[in-house]
Simulated scan of single mutants.
Amino acid sequence: MNKKIRVHIADDHKILIEGLIAVINTEKSLSIKGYSLTGKQVVDWFDKKGNSADVLVLDITMPELDGFEVLKHFREQKINQKVIILSSYDDIKIVDEVLKLGASGYISKGNAGGHIIQAIKKVAAGEQYFSDDIQSLLLQKITGGKLPIGDAPEDFLFEKLTEREIKVLRLVTLEYNTSEIADQLNVSHHTVETHRRKLLKKLNVKSSVGLAMYAVKFKVV
């Protein structure tokens, strides 16, 4: 008797998880090994001794840790986990990034029902899998065709910030200097500068002015 493929699902919408579980349970060769509602729950689940899954179905935008951070955690901890990204966004930049971080597949949520079972089987077997719309984007990129503008929202990068980074962003916007921010947050100067560098990189801006513009746009101050 063939061993069942064990699947863990991570998404911050319980109703979507329940829908996926219902679809996956129609296939006898697959079995559900729990689910997570936040990125931190994913990391904690896989870090706990005895917990493992052949395939993780992972959302990008989740509380506490996003999908990128979960993939980075796996890489840093040398956890060789097969991952299928399930996302609302069809932006090629996001697809490229998760593939660089080790994901084996990418399915847009609108196509999940028709692809999830085949995707799990393919990825469990060591192959890559993409839903039709994502395959089209990748083909256009390879052939040099004009890529459509992705549907990642303008605040996508902003949503990737940690709670501490948002606090630093708020204080930078209020014109606090490094020493003052360090005092406010009770951290070292080095920690503040590290947060500042991460903010510049994540938000793709070059100065405190750019950070302030983001903060004002998304009503941080």
Rank of each mutant, 00 (worst) to 15 (best):
A103Y: 04
I32C: 04
V205T: 02
S136A: 14
I21T: 12
K217T: 13
K122G: 00
K122F: 10
I181Q: 05
V216C: 09
K93L: 14
G144W: 15
V123G: 00
V123R: 06
E64F: 12
S207L: 11
F68H: 03
K49T: 13
N111D: 14
L157H: 08
L157W: 08
I116N: 02
G39L: 03
L20K: 00
L147F: 12
I60P: 00
A215H: 03
I142H: 10
L20M: 12
E27A: 15
S131C: 11
V42R: 05
A22F: 09
L16P: 03
T173S: 11
Y35E: 06
K4C: 04
K198V: 02
R164V: 12
F158Q: 05
T173P: 04
V7C: 02
Q118N: 14
I120F: 08
S88T: 02
S88N: 12
L211Y: 04
G145V: 08
V95C: 12
T61C: 05
K40Q: 15
H8F: 08
V123S: 05
V192D: 01
D11C: 00
K72F: 03
Y176C: 04
I181P: 00
E175T: 04
N111V: 06
I79H: 12
Q135Y: 01
D132E: 12
A152T: 01
N111W: 07
G67R: 02
S87K: 04
S207I: 00
I9E: 02
F130E: 00
D44K: 15
E193K: 04
A10G: 03
E127I: 06
A125K: 06
D155T: 07
L200R: 00
G102N: 05
V43G: 04
A22E: 06
A215I: 07
K219E: 15
I149N: 08
K48N: 11
E165M: 08
D151P: 00
N51I: 13
D155H: 08
G114S: 14
I85N: 03
K109E: 06
N177P: 01
Y214P: 01
D90S: 10
G150E: 12
T38C: 11
R170L: 09
S208Q: 11
L169D: 04
Q128G: 08
I15L: 08
L199F: 10
A22P: 02
I116P: 02
S207N: 15
L139G: 07
V168K: 03
K219T: 10
H73R: 05
V98Y: 02
T38N: 12
Q118E: 15
K48F: 15
K93N: 13
F156L: 12
A212D: 14
G126I: 07
K78S: 12
E27S: 10
K219R: 14
V168Y: 05
K122I: 06
F46R: 01
R164T: 09
I142V: 09
K146M: 13
G19C: 07
A215S: 14
S104N: 14
G105W: 06
A125P: 01
M1N: 06
V95G: 01
F156S: 06
S88H: 09
A182S: 09
S179E: 09
P63C: 13
V43S: 01
G114Y: 15
I85C: 05
F130I: 03
K219N: 15
